[in-house]
Amino acid sequence: MAATITDLFLNPGRFFEQKMREEEGLKLPSLIILIAGIIGAIGAAISLGPIIQLLPSEAASFTPVLMAITTGAALVTVFVIWVVWTVVFFLLSMPFKGTGGFKRLLEFVGYGYLPQVIGGLITLPIFYLYFSGLDLPQVSDPTQIQEITLQLMSAPELQIAGVISVLFLIWSANIWIFGLKEARNISFRHAAIAVGVPVGLYVIFQLYSLFFSGGF
């Protein structure tokens, strides 16, 4: 019986057990990461729109370049973070005598990004509704641009969107625990520690940034 997306969400243990019987493959995980990257790039473009309004009219010619760099960076960053999470989990599972390969773990971590795709689809409209309604004045002082940007990012809408993203990251972490357990052949408890510690620290950092540092 083939593993389904429903299993991934509701019974990830069985999903990854079945995947372990299949050949390692990164096509589907890469597609998931790509979708997550596209969503992130769209979000970055939406966020950048009002920031560009702040720039002086002389800097208008740089707008397309700036937009391309930002969206491209957002897209690439998702792939980089995918690898980073996998490396972290791989390393943290080593003390627990994990035996599975890196590619299998990369595949399972990629599957674990699917909740974040859903989270991105939920937060994207929030970003759009918030940023599309802003009308900002042009300013020339870079410190003022920074000040206004911080004010924009500390809006309640964006803070709630950030919390939603954290919730979906926790959901991903839950999947990653099951994936790490199967991919590295370690106990559920050890997998929970290997995933829970770095993700927990990241969540704390994210929440601190949201509520105490004025934005993302």
């Binding site: 939920i122 929030i126 509704l129 918030y130 599309s132 309604g133 802003l134 009308d135 809006a155 309640p156 809408e157 709630i160 969107a161 919390v163 939603i164 919730l167």
Partner: peptide, 18 residues
């Protein structure tokens, strides 16, 4: 502005989503 109006009403909906 319209976004400011939404600043008062919209977070409630977002909180519900949350």
């Amino acid at each position: 502005t319209s976004s400011s109006e939404e600043e008062r009403g919209f977070p409630v909906a977002i909180v519900a989503v949350l």
